[in-house]
């Protein structure tokens, strides 16, 4: 077991990206919570208000980036947790496929939602 450590995988990029997205998410998640629970109460949210916010390009872009980074951070976090648990072989392969698919699905659906909210017709 000890001898076959390969010298090809240098997967530091996932570690780094997890940190970079974390730094971004800390700010945006706090902003998101603050805006939609304290500035606007969650109960008072209507479609009109949502559309108004999402029509702003900066807000739209931020929210979309929020979606993508949160998806990566979450899915990668789950994967890390599984690897720490010691999954390997087929199990690991399956986890990778499932998680990548779930992440992709979430981003696609999230983008569709964002587009609908902003009222952009494609």
């Amino acid at each position: 077991m000890a001898r076959h450590y390969s010298s090809f995988d240098r997967r530091g990029w996932r570690w780094l990206l997890q940190r970079v997205t974390a730094a971004f998410l800390v700010v945006v998640l706090a902003f998101h919570f603050f805006l939609l629970h304290f500035v606007h109460h969650a109960a008072d949210i209507t479609f009109a208000g949502t559309r108004f916010r999402m029509s702003n390009l900066g807000y739209f872009a931020t929210m979309w980036l929020f979606l993508v980074t949160a998806t990566f951070h979450g899915v990668n976090g789950v994967y890390n947790a599984l690897v720490n648990q010691g999954i390997a072989g087929t199990q690991k392969r399956v986890a990778q496929v499932v998680l990548v698919a779930a992440g992709a699905l979430l981003v696609v659906q999230g983008t569709r939602v964002a587009v609908a909210m902003a009222g952009i017709s494609i």
Binding site: T50, L67, L106, G110, R112, V113, A116, M117
Partner: peptide
């Protein structure tokens, strides 16, 4: 995202 999908 599932809940917000109702926006569509």
């Amino acid at each position: 995202i599932a809940v917000l999908s109702t926006a569509i």
